[in-house]
């Protein structure tokens, strides 16, 4: 099978957001049957479903923008590590519930702003998908910030573990607000949003929650990025190896 790539800038733009969602959906799905309580298995499954649903809508739209040569599953399953353009934050593995919630909280706070802005997109499909996604993101943020606060201000152990989760994920947060030429082009056309403008609101939400959680905003200045241009950490390849295994092993079949 030929390599699947996007052709137009619009499709490329849509796919980067689809990639974020499918990857974090996959990370959340890893946790199903491993949660501290059954209620949390339910919640994590619910959030995984929301993210995968958004990814499916966005990929489908990207494929149609490019003339229908591809489809959602081909975009998700037949592109390689270097072709995925998700943020580094979402591909990070979690070693415990604290890291999982830290990753989710930092990302949810970003997605609430992102979908809010994209709800105003001049592109009706993007706006429609975003209007639904912003409601889901607000609900995800309520859940994840609730856990950050409970664990941060719970026992000494839960405080320390939640702090170390935030510390572990913090180095990928600058990247949420990097804007490249494509972002700026889409923002100028009123289709997309310049991520840089989402920063102030994100900072406020994160600072408020960390304060209520009695947690400290990490002071390590080290930050990294590169996901939007296919420069990933070593974790993505293994996630894709598992996610894409069926389509790669049995190409061209219907499931």
């Amino acid at each position: 099978m030929n390599t699947i790539t996007t052709q137009s800038p619009l499709a490329t733009y849509i796919v980067r957001h689809a990639d974020d969602n499918v990857i974090i959906g996959q990370r959340l799905a890893e946790y199903i049957s491993r949660a501290p309580e059954l209620e949390e298995d339910l919640a994590v499954a619910n959030f995984a479903l929301d993210h995968i649903g958004v990814a499916n809508h966005l990929y489908t739209y990207a494929a149609s923008v490019d003339g229908g040569q591809s489809d959602a599953d081909a975009l998700a399953m037949m592109r390689s590590e270097r072709e995925f353009t998700n943020l580094l934050l979402v591909e990070q593995p979690h070693s415990d519930f604290g890291e999982l919630m830290a990753r989710q909280f930092l990302f949810d706070a970003y997605q609430v702003g992102l979908w809010g802005a994209l709800s105003e997109s001049s592109d009706e499909t993007i706006s429609g998908i975003s209007q639904r996604a912003v409601k889901e993101a607000a609900y995800h943020l309520r859940h994840s910030s609730g856990w950050v606060i409970r664990l941060g201000d719970g026992t000494q152990e839960s405080h320390d573990r939640m702090q170390s989760g935030i510390d572990r994920m913090w180095r990928y947060t600058e990247e949420l607000f990097f804007s490249d030429e494509l972002d700026q082009e889409m923002a100028r056309a009123a289709i997309g949003v310049d991520p840089a403008i989402l920063r102030t609101d994100w900072e406020r939400v994160v600072d408020d929650v960390l304060e209520e959680a009695t947690l400290t905003r990490p002071s390590d200045p080290y930050q990294t990025g590169g996901g939007r241009s296919g420069g990933h950490t070593e974790h993505l390849g293994k996630l894709l190896a598992e996610m894409q295994w069926m389509q790669r092993s049995y190409p061209g079949m219907t499931w």
């Binding site: 199903i32 059954l38 499954a45 479903l49 598992e242 996610m243 069926m246 389509q247 499931w255």
Partner: peptide, 20 residues
């Protein structure tokens, strides 16, 4: 994690969620 399509993945997650 290995479901062959996004739709099958979503259905399987929903099913396991029902079981919980």
């Amino acid at each position: 994690l290995r479901a062959p399509t996004l739709l099958r993945k979503a259905i399987l997650i929903a099913k396991v969620q029902d079981e919980a």
